[in-house]
Design a protein around this nucleic acid. Structure first.
Lengths: 244, 244
DNA sequence: GGGACGGTTCGGCCGCTGCCGAACCGTCCC
DNA sequence: GGGACGGTTCGGCAGCGGCCGAACCGTCCC
């Protein structure tokens, strides 16, 4: 409590240096790559290069830049290198930042069997996405568990606890409790944030969904189908392809 | 629910275009300016130019760029123009982003009477900062109201409600409930986030602090002094200059 | 009106960086 | 071993962007 420290009291303009992260986000190619990775997926450099529309050499430079900025991590698997977001903090930051830059360019890739499976149910970083995520979010909203802007209501607190979701842990997390994830189409959103992660944890723990090997894709188990109808108010068939 | 939409189900790589915001953050001068504004203050272009170490003409270009990116807003007052962050979402995004770029350059400005007043108690965007903010945060932590990483505890829920803070509203906000604001020195943090805002609202509503005209500075009223000692466990004298 | 002042706009310079193709390295597989 | 393949490194080019000084505009004040 000595007076010495008072001498340092200039102005609290210390702050953070945003330039490194800013530079990393500044190039369209890097932005595209990050958008591909923001769902928590891990992808080889070649795929990211193709998606960003640049040569492999250019992509390599971008990816090392992103890694230097601490935004992505790399894992060698065989002769390829898989890139993913460095940690959940990066995903959070990008999600928060995403609200500042609403313009959403749309890139459509050709339909494939795997894409169709992912469209049905998958993990988006650490929460449920795909038609499963959207249907679940809409069912919770319809029941009054989620209010405007997906805010958790008292009814939601009770309902989710009853469904076995650890709501208290989610609420006391440092992360935002609920968040609308813009990952899907421009008009549909699904629940993200700490509560979204808690819901996903419950689904996995209860065996309602299971991970498909090596992908972020999920399969809804028979028990999951029943639970969705009985516990969550999601009608059977809602997840079918035609219902997209 | 027709099948038409299924045709669009390529891959959900729509996402956000981070380039605009990224570009805005990429330059050191702009980063410095934003760091000055992240506490919610409103400052004339000349001050920002001086702080960033660039000529007024250059600063003007930077500020229009920040405004174009939607990060800052401008208000004309007399013959000068005051710049501030566009909205609370920008402050949130910068705060979240700040965790990704820990390196914190330090700029010390010369001590002034006003700076000393601000060091004592001020608003940091929408929550309490300065020695008041730090002391309050530490008192809450000492009482077990805030746990690790300033997470709100059950005791905190009860204690803050008892002190008249609208905890429920803060918890159901879309913003993170609690956050450690790095705005002060590198070693002291104060409570930010939705709960920090709720605490500040309570302090202003109860008349414990009052805004000083036209600044983000606060004066602690006599009633506030009493409330700090009785309700909040902040010993008298803690806010004195020598206690910095 | 006139001068001081704060801020913006304009023109020009320089450095940085994103892009590519070519060459190189390591892994996998025949 | 040899070839295919994924990825990185290197050299070079082109464009963008940050910086400045000078000129211009609007406000304030004498």
């Amino acid at each position: 409590m000595g007076g010495r420290a008072a001498r340092r009291t200039g102005k609290d303009v210390s702050g953070k240096d945003f330039t490194a992260v800013g530079r990393a986000l500044a190039a369209p190619a890097r932005s595209t790559m990050l958008n591909l990775l923001v769902d928590g997926s891990s992808r080889p450099a070649s795929e990211l290069a193709h998606a960003a529309g640049v040569r492999p050499s250019t992509a390599s430079e971008h990816l090392t830049a992103l890694a230097d900025a601490g935004l992505v991590a790399v894992a060698r698997r065989g002769r390829q290198r898989f890139y993913r977001l460095a940690d959940v903090g990066v995903a959070d930051a990008l999600e928060t930042l995403g609200r500042l830059c609403p313009p959403a360019p749309v890139v459509t890739l050709r339909q494939s069997a795997e894409a169709a499976r992912l469209a049905r149910a998958r993990l988006c970083y650490d929460h449920l996405a795909g038609r499963l995520g959207v249907a679940l979010t809409e069912a919770m909203a319809a029941r009054g568990w989620l209010g405007d802007a997906l805010v958790l209501t008292d009814a939601g607190q009770a309902g989710l606890s009853g469904a076995g979701v650890d709501v208290d842990a989610a609420r006391s997390s440092r992360r935002p409790t609920t968040r609308a994830c813009p990952d899907w189409t421009e008009r549909r959103e699904h629940l993200a944030g700490a509560l979204g992660a808690a819901v996903a944890t419950r689904f996995l723990g209860a065996g309602w969904v299971a991970r498909r090997s090596g992908t972020r894709g999920l399969v809804v188990t028979d028990g999951g189908q029943a639970a969705l109808a009985d516990l969550w108010g999601v009608a059977a068939g809602t997840l079918d392809d035609a219902a997209a």
